[in-house]
Design a protein around this nucleic acid. Structure first.
Lengths: 174, 174
DNA sequence: CTGTCAGTTCAGGTATTTCTGAAAGTACGA
DNA sequence: TCGTACTTTCAGAAATACCTGAACTGACAG
């Protein structure tokens, strides 16, 4: 798979962005490449195209699979793994958000719940701090259930809602 | 400022989370501390409480100020800077999102626009790849304008909408 | 002026993450 | 059972991000 200059720019930029979001550059570049590629690619292909070590590609692909962003397919009479990425951008986004929610939001809510309980039998923590922690918890819990709800709305409806922009506000009754 | 064990847990966890989101640990810890603290703190205070180098605190505070999450105040007859963080969680969230949009989403849209234009006079890039880039651009542009719109909805309305959860879907007319 | 206090800058050390290459593992066909 | 083709593992190298300490600046009081 040869990269045209345009494709290169995309892949490189994707890598840059990823590192600002706590994702390793290779993982992101591989994801970008698979996202763009019309055909599934082998690990070897990817390593050659992006000039990465074969082993790095292997590990990064596992990571992407654990995020459910990349899948394996096979070709008859070929025992190599062929990798392809989800192509639907909506799905890519929701998949990433689901993952981050599970790995970051949920544990944080958990911890805050602990802290709030702990704070009850804790005379040292000043009252305003306790309140702040509690309000943080409440906020994240609301955010979390809101996300679950919205996540369940069928896509076409969601797109309609999105296109409505600020006009959705009218259902709030004012 | 002495940290109670509960406060410590919060601050440390905030630091962990941050590093998964591409924010340095000290920056996040300082932010957490200021967010919890009922009173504004001096840089010296912060350094002592979190056991960080004074210079690190100085730089991190600048960073937090550049994100508009932390502000300086002064006390009469005291030339030290007192720092305090936005306490309103909604505002904290929107401020962070505004920042990330400006620093990451907008430049990405820009780049993709370039790529799409470039692709027009580029015979090498395969057609399906061009389409994929274009659809990515379109998606991010939609996301971006949607965000702008929703950002403009007054907070009480937004909260109502949020509490409605999936029921907002009914305005989409089905 | 001079000394002190607060804040900033930055070169360089430290820690962490990321990546690599060699070696080991696995599956399959002959 | 061996050879081949492919994949995975992992110790340590390389790159990067992060933090520190020392030196500097500037503002003020005496």
């Amino acid at each position: 798979m040869m990269l045209t200059p345009t494709m290169q720019r995309c892949v490189l930029h994707w890598g840059e962005m990823a590192s600002r979001w706590g994702v390793s550059r290779s993982v992101a570049q591989i994801h970008a490449l698979l996202f763009l590629s019309p055909e599934p690619l082998t690990a070897e292909d990817i390593a050659a195209t992006l000039a990465l070590a074969r082993s790095n590609v292997s590990v990064s692909l596992k990571e992407l699979q654990s995020w459910d962003l990349v899948h394996v397919t096979h070709v008859l009479g070929d025992r190599r793994d062929y990798f392809h990425a989800r192509k639907d951008i909506w799905e890519v986004l929701t998949t990433i958000m689901d993952g981050r929610k599970k790995r970051e939001l949920d544990p944080t809510v958990h911890l805050l719940r602990d802290c709030v309980n702990e704070a009850k039998r804790d005379a040292d923590t000043p009252e305003p701090v306790k309140e702040r922690i509690a309000s943080m918890l409440e906020f994240l819990e609301e955010l979390s259930t809101w996300y679950e709800q919205v996540r369940g709305i069928p896509r076409p409806t969601l797109i309609k809602l999105m296109r409505m922009g600020a006009r959705v506000a009218k259902v709030a009754g004012n």
